[in-house]
C-alpha cells in the first residue's frame, strides 16, 4: 500500500514522537508513506481566523502538489490538518465562488487542482485499508492496558467521513484488536481547547481537566490520542491542571501509533515513547 503523506508542521517539531511512531508502524504493516515535496502549513485555526480564504488556498496548494504527482489520496496524522485539507476540498466541490477564488490564487503561481483529492487520516488507513484482522494477526505482545480512546474534534466533524461526529469507535476497535481493554468514554469526541491553551488558558485547562478526569474515573491507565495538539494539551499541561483543580493526575497520553507499535513488538525507543511530559514507566514496562 502506497500513499502520499502530509506530515504537517507538528510532526516536524513538537510531535516528532508521532512522526517516528507513524513511520515505524507503517513499516511493520507494509504501508509506504511518500512525503509530499515542499508541502506547506494547512492554515489551521491560526491562519483561518485572519483569512478564511488563505487557509483554503494553502491547503489546496498541498493537494495540488499531490494531484500533479498522480496521487488520488493524501494521508495525514493530525486532526487539524485533516479538517483543514478536507475543508479546502469541500469548498472547491460545493461552493462555486470559493472554487473560483482557490483556482485563481493557484493559477497565479502556475498550479492547478481538480479538487477531487481524498484526504484520509492514518487511523482510517489502519482500520479500513490495512484492516483489523491483519493487524491483530501481527500482534507480538497484546497490550493488556486499560485505555481511554480520545479522538478530539475533527475526525468526525464537521461531517462524518469515516467516523461518527458524536461517538467515534474505530480507535476503540483498533486498540481492542491489539489486546487492550478500551473503556467507555463520553468525552472521546469533546474538545481539548486546541489553540485556546495559549489564548484562553483557563478555558482549555478546564476542558482538559474534564477529559482526563473521566479517563481516570473509568479506570484508564493511558489516554490514546490521534492529534498532536490534543497530545500537547492533555500531557504538557497536566501539572498545571493538577495545580488548578487540586487533582493528582499522572495520566500518560500516548499516540495511538505508539500503542499499536508496542503491540506489534516495536521497542519503546523506536516509537519515541517517553517524549511526553507525564512519565509512562509505571504503566508501560516492556
Amino acid at each position: 500500500m502506497r500513499y502520499a503523506y502530509f506530515p504537517g508542521c507538528s510532526n516536524h517539531a513538537s510531535s516528532k514522537d508521532y512522526e517516528q511512531s507513524t513511520q515505524a508502524v507503517a513499516r511493520v504493516l507494509g504501508v509506504e508513506l511518500a512525503e509530499l515535496p515542499d508541502w506547506n502549513c494547512c492554515g489551521t485555526t491560526g491562519v483561518t481566523s485572519v483569512s478564511p480564504l488563505l487557509s483554503a488556498v494553502l491547503s489546496a496548494r498541498n493537494l495540488a502538489i499531490a494531484e500533479a504527482q498522480g496521487w488520488e489520496e493524501v494521508v495525514v496524522t493530525c486532526n487539524s490538518c485533516f479538517g483543514m485539507l478536507r475543508r479546502a476540498g469541500d469548498y472547491h466541490r460545493q461552493d462555486p465562488a470559493m472554487r473560483e477564488k482557490i483556482d485563481a490564487a493557484l493559477a497565479g503561481v502556475g498550479k492547478k487542482w481538480q479538487g477531487q483529492t481524498r484526504v484520509r487520516h492514518l487511523l482510517d488507513i489502519l482500520v479500513n485499508d490495512v484492516g483489523l484482522e491483519t493487524i491483530a494477526g501481527k500482534v507480538k505482545r497484546p497490550l493488556r492496558l486499560k485505555i481511554a480512546p480520545y479522538y478530539g474534534c475533527l475526525l468526525g466533524r464537521p461531517r462524518n467521513e469515516f467516523e461518527d461526529s458524536e461517538y467515534p469507535e474505530s480507535m476503540d476497535q483498533l486498540l481492542s484488536a491489539v489486546g487492550a481493554e478500551v473503556v467507555p468514554y463520553d468525552h472521546k469526541a469533546k474538545c481539548c481547547g486546541g489553540a485556546l491553551m495559549t489564548t484562553k488558558e483557563e478555558v482549555a485547562l478546564r476542558l482538559c481537566y474534564e477529559i482526563i478526569g473521566e479517563a481516570q474515573d473509568r479506570g484508564a491507565q493511558v489516554i490514546a490520542v490521534t492529534c498532536p495538539m490534543c497530545q500537547l494539551n492533555l500531557d504538557g499541561y497536566q501539572n498545571k491542571i493538577n495545580a488548578r483543580f487540586g487533582t493528582n493526575f499522572k495520566m500518560p497520553v500516548l499516540y495511538f501509533t505508539q500503542l499499536v507499535g508496542l503491540a506489534l513488538g516495536l521497542r519503546e525507543r523506536q516509537l519515541a515513547i517517553g517524549k511526553g511530559f507525564v512519565p509512562v514507566k509505571q504503566v508501560i514496562n516492556f
Binding site: T45, C153, G156, P158, S165, E166, C191, A195
Partner: peptide, 9 residues
C-alpha cells in the same frame, strides 16, 4: 476553538 460541534449539529 473551532471544534465544529455547532456546525455538525
Amino acid at each position: 476553538a473551532a471544534c465544529y460541534y455547532c456546525t455538525a449539529r
